[in-house]
Simulated assay, not measured.
Amino acid sequence: MMTIEIITTEELEKKLEAGEKLELVDVREDEEVAQGMIRGAKHIRMMTIPENLGQFDKEKEYIFICRSGARSENVCYYMQDQGYKVRNMIGGMLNWAGEVVVK
């Protein structure tokens, strides 16, 4: 099985603080993201990823986020199979110590 590139919550926080433009996709359910998301993340629920492939660009790298890192890892395998560049944020939002925004 192909491996998935990962990023830790600390690494991601540093990149965002440094002003890097990143493509973040939160795949949690609506009631979960209602508790707060990482600033700049797009919300596309895991089960709706296949029908939303048109929103993704194969030239860009996407960082997938969920609560613990398990669902986002599954999404990463799927997206990588479709030919997209992906990274999984390991530890998920449970491990995220940075700022969150509530929509």
Results as ranks from 00 to 15, higher is better:
residue 22 L to W: 10
residue 45 R to W: 06
residue 56 F to D: 00
residue 30 D to E: 15
residue 17 E to A: 15
residue 34 A to N: 11
residue 68 S to N: 09
residue 15 K to F: 09
residue 62 Y to H: 03
residue 98 G to H: 01
residue 34 A to E: 15
residue 85 K to N: 13
residue 70 A to H: 07
residue 99 E to V: 12
residue 36 G to T: 00
residue 49 I to N: 01
residue 64 F to L: 15
residue 65 I to T: 08
residue 43 H to I: 07
residue 76 C to T: 02
residue 60 K to E: 01
residue 42 K to F: 07
residue 20 E to R: 00
residue 40 G to Y: 12
residue 12 L to F: 06
residue 24 L to D: 08
residue 63 I to F: 06
residue 82 Q to A: 08
residue 27 V to C: 01
residue 88 N to G: 09
residue 66 C to E: 00
residue 36 G to K: 14
residue 22 L to D: 10
residue 21 K to C: 04
residue 95 N to G: 03
residue 96 W to Y: 04
residue 73 E to W: 00
residue 46 M to P: 07
residue 44 I to H: 02
residue 25 V to R: 00
residue 70 A to F: 01
residue 26 D to M: 11
residue 85 K to Y: 00
residue 46 M to K: 12
residue 88 N to D: 15
residue 95 N to S: 15
residue 90 I to S: 01
residue 69 G to Y: 03
residue 27 V to T: 08
residue 37 M to F: 06
residue 50 P to F: 00
residue 40 G to Q: 10
residue 31 E to G: 10
residue 25 V to Y: 03
residue 22 L to A: 03
residue 41 A to C: 06
residue 93 M to N: 04
residue 68 S to R: 05
residue 41 A to W: 04
residue 30 D to C: 07
residue 17 E to H: 12
residue 67 R to Q: 15
residue 96 W to L: 09
residue 76 C to W: 01
residue 19 G to I: 13
residue 55 Q to W: 09
residue 22 L to Y: 10
residue 78 Y to T: 00
residue 38 I to G: 09
residue 50 P to A: 05
residue 13 E to T: 13
residue 13 E to W: 09
residue 30 D to S: 15
residue 28 R to V: 02
residue 95 N to F: 09
residue 58 K to G: 04
residue 29 E to G: 12
residue 39 R to N: 02
residue 83 G to I: 04
residue 19 G to T: 08
residue 61 E to K: 08
residue 34 A to G: 13
residue 73 E to L: 07
residue 93 M to W: 05
residue 53 L to C: 06
residue 57 D to I: 10
residue 46 M to D: 04
residue 80 Q to E: 09
residue 87 R to K: 15
residue 59 E to L: 00
residue 86 V to K: 06
residue 50 P to H: 01
residue 81 D to G: 15
residue 42 K to T: 15
residue 77 Y to T: 05
residue 11 E to C: 05
residue 27 V to L: 01
residue 56 F to N: 04
residue 50 P to I: 08
residue 99 E to Q: 14
residue 52 N to D: 02
residue 13 E to H: 14
residue 29 E to P: 12
residue 57 D to T: 11
residue 40 G to S: 05
residue 12 L to P: 14
residue 64 F to N: 08
residue 98 G to K: 02
residue 22 L to E: 09
residue 97 A to D: 10
residue 95 N to W: 12
residue 86 V to E: 06
residue 91 G to E: 11
residue 94 L to T: 11
residue 82 Q to S: 05
residue 51 E to S: 14
residue 60 K to Y: 00
residue 57 D to A: 11
residue 47 M to R: 13
residue 19 G to N: 10
residue 23 E to A: 11
residue 30 D to Y: 14
residue 37 M to Y: 06
residue 80 Q to L: 13
residue 19 G to R: 10
residue 60 K to P: 00
residue 10 E to I: 11
residue 72 S to W: 01
residue 21 K to F: 05
residue 82 Q to R: 14
